[in-house]
Nucleic acid binder design. Structure first.
Lengths: 327, 327
DNA sequence: TCCTATCGTGCAAGCGCTTGCAGATCATCT
DNA sequence: AGATGATCTGCAAGCGCTTGCACGATAGGA
């Protein structure tokens, strides 16, 4: 292994100069620096992460917590996070919380002195605990706002409002909202936004459902029993299950039932091309969360801030007028 | 922060004694040890990971590489890996390779001196490169065997043989295999096993397909065009797509077409209860891979070994006699 | 020309933990 | 009683990097 001192010897300077040439270029004269850089390059020098961590107190590791990996919504989120981490010169430790506040707490404790910060999608943990964690460690929350903790929130409520207006405009008077998961910070906000945007329209909140195909199959019965003419599902796998169940019963969208999803299927490679959906910038959310985190962990701690990412409604053929109004 | 020396002072011993009481209990007298442990407990002492890493050369970090997070098959794999890592007292760095050999190589290089070992599902990287990596860093491969590199392989070829025998026994004479991904080590072995177990049966290899819902929808056309009476898909999302496409056309299984999946849907919460499938122990595979890795990374390096995990065929109602033989 | 900023570099002291070695203590054997 | 181990503990030297401080050199101002 090639050490700082090996480079120093090769360049005819001291180890501290090499360290500075690499980390604080402006402190070193142009001539020396290029000589050092050349030597480092030639010898293939690479920082020893542990030594650097010991000296600086920063590990170069960022944690990213998600409730589950089975949900396709999380894949682009993590991909974005990973990309941002790489660009910040850090590694990403992905941890699965199972949505359990206890496990979340255990993970925070275990990782606290191993990572420089924590970004997490933790709909269920009590806000007080999060604030407490944030006091000891840079923390960024996803899809959730907590006082004093920077956050990245995808504006699905805004999208829900668009869907509500869209469906109400088509003439629907009874719409089902397939919500979940229980205890989610965002879920009641989505529902409220949907209701508010469709004033003349009764919105039946069903669920909560797990974001699973299977759950969607079962949900269709409830939707029909409730006499709704349109259904909005909070997750793409749920939508997929509803669509399968509809097809199995010989129902089609939108002739028999309008269908919309709060999460665009095509993004997950689960494309059924014709479902009206929200295009959610989940990759961007993951990326921004980690960028924000890297800022917080950096010596120059940019202050906390909340970011709301807009979503776009994509109207496709699965939504149309209710059956009794069809042309 | 409470340091080793703080504990030492509290217990009235030296820092080295504390270190040993924690790491080599047998070197320390019973009395001293319990006194030290009590003090450590009381003060809430925790190792400083970076300091330990610098002194020992071991980081307590293990890397786990997967081609993608969008594939539901990977979720239990990673969950198992994470559990094993926790039990070994390590953190797991999950990295996504995108299935690109170049990116894999870059990740190996970048993580080489950050982690104690690498477990990876890398169907595409050249074997020579993997052997090279394994020379410099503990490495365990998943679903792939490379000379001299320990591996955990799920015996889907064995499961394919069971499916082949099952379908041939039902009277099928032309079976479609929906394979993928291109360049996978395991894929040709699955196909060969399927062929071998169904001697009187023509096995049409279609694809390669991506493990996606959408791909399954398209695949059905090819299956029907090829005149097959049964179809075996290598991935559960693919199966789901086929099933949807069948339903949309009014075809049902097994009356019109028998359907089997090399990967059990119910495991991923994508349960469509009646699909004949292989139950693959993916959680166990992830767990074993990381356990093996932790062994390799430990001072007592257990030798390389290959593990083949058996799979179980679950016959359900989606497979039956071909249409012309139906009762 | 002498004095004072300014800039670039080196020295050395850590960061917190591990571990080879040597010293101390006490039991056992001759 | 003296010698010989065996057992336990402490000393101190690192692991590789960063960084406050001091020092020497160079440039600018009086």
């Amino acid at each position: 292994m090639v050490r700082l001192e090996d480079v120093a010897r090769a360049a005819g300077v001291s180890a501290s100069t090499v360290s500075r040439a690499l980390a604080r270029p402006d402190m070193i004269s142009e001539a020396t620096r290029s000589r050092v850089l050349e030597a480092a390059e030639r010898l293939g020098y690479r920082h020893h992460p542990a030594a650097r961590a010991l000296a600086t107190g920063r590990t170069g590791l960022l944690a990213f917590g998600v409730p589950s990996l089975a949900n396709p919504y999380h894949a682009p989120l993590i991909a974005g996070a990973q990309q941002a981490a790489e660009e910040a010169g850090c590694e990403l430790v992905v941890v699965v919380t199972d949505g359990s506040p206890d496990r979340e707490a255990a993970l925070f404790a275990r990782l606290a002195d191993r990572v420089d910060g924590f970004a997490a999608l933790i709909p269920g943990s009590p806000a007080a605990r999060l604030a407490e964690v944030a006091a000891g460690l840079p923390l960024v929350t996803l899809d959730r706002r907590v006082r004093g903790v920077p956050s990245i929130v995808i504006d699905t409520p805004g999208g829900m409002a668009a869907l509500g207006a869209h469906l109400a405009g088509l003439g629907h008077r009874r719409v089902a909202y397939l919500g979940g998961p229980a205890g989610s910070w965002l879920d009641p906000r989505r529902l409220a936004a949907l209701r508010e945007a469709a004033p003349g329209c009764e919105v039946r909140a069903l669920g909560p459902y797990l974001p699973e195909y299977q759950a969607g199959i079962g949900a269709l019965d409830e939707v029909l029993a409730a006499g709704c003419t349109a259904v909005v599902a909070y997750s793409s796998t749920l939508t997929l299950g509803v669509l399968y169940a509809m097809t199995a019963r010989g129902l089609s969208a939108p002739a028999d039932l309008s269908l919309a999803s709060a999460d665009d299927l095509s993004a997950a490679g689960l494309a059924v091309p014709d479902v009206t959906a929200l295009r959610v910038p989940s990759r961007a959310a993951g990326r921004l969360a980690v960028e924000r985190l890297a800022d917080l962990a950096a010596p120059r701690p940019a202050g906390p801030a909340h970011t709301l990412l807009p979503v776009e409604m994509i109207v496709r053929s699965s939504s149309g007028p209710p059956p009794d109004r069809a042309p």
